[in-house]
């Protein structure tokens, strides 16, 4: 009898462990948004109407992200408990940054420096919180680096702001995203 009951405890532990073992990859999302921002930045320098270019590029990224999430959710056989809290964090981040970008700058309420500082602080918050939920030190470190960049643009000279922005988009979004995509590729090969 005791043996049967102990087997039941083992069964519960095994099933819970298996179900919790979820690896969802969001590298494509970081790479997409990072590339979108760098392309928008490049085009806004050479073409007229920079605000329109940013609006089109960011809307396109938003639509592409929505479609990809919908497709992923439709094909995945289960939804992890962490999915909803993470979605809430990144949706909140997206709405906040959209307000800052499309209303804060044209209204004159934000300068390039204050916009970058706010953007970096929000990126730090979103990455750090996601890292804490996932217990993933790499993303916690990424969040911390966004906060450090925010401090740099708050106190650094004017000329480093644009370069810090480009460097952080490239490293914190494009490179981070590509690294995650590479990890996904390796994990799938070993699965």
């Amino acid at each position: 009898m005791d043996q049967e009951l102990l087997q039941r405890i083992d069964l519960i532990e095994q099933m819970v462990l298996q179900a919790r073992h979820t690896t969802q990859y969001w590298g494509w999302c970081f790479a997409l948004w990072g590339t979108g921002q760098l392309v928008a930045l490049g085009l806004s320098i050479v073409l007229p109407s920079p605000m329109l270019i940013w609006a089109i590029a960011m809307t396109a990224c938003g639509i592409a992200t929505g479609i990809m999430i919908r497709r992923k959710r439709a094909t995945e056989e289960k939804e992890s408990l962490a999915f909803r809290p993470l979605l809430a964090i990144w949706c909140g981040f997206g709405i906040s940054i959209s307000l800052l970008s499309f209303l804060g700058q044209p209204s004159g309420a934000l300068t390039m420096r204050s916009f970058c500082a706010a953007f970096f602080v929000l990126m730090g918050f979103a990455n750090f919180s996601s890292g804490m939920i996932l217990r993933w030190p790499l993303q916690i470190a990424a969040g911390t680096s966004w906060w450090m960049a925010a401090i740099l643009v708050m106190f650094g000279p004017e000329k480093i702001i644009a370069w810090t922005f480009i460097a952080m988009i490239f490293l914190g979004e494009v490179v981070f995203g590509l690294y995650l995509m590479l990890r996904e590729h390796v994990d799938r090969r070993h699965a």
Binding site: L11, M15, V16, S80
Partner: peptide, 8 residues
């Protein structure tokens, strides 16, 4: 046990 560890 599985359902207790996932949303669905």
């Amino acid at each position: 046990s599985i359902l207790s560890a996932v949303a669905k």
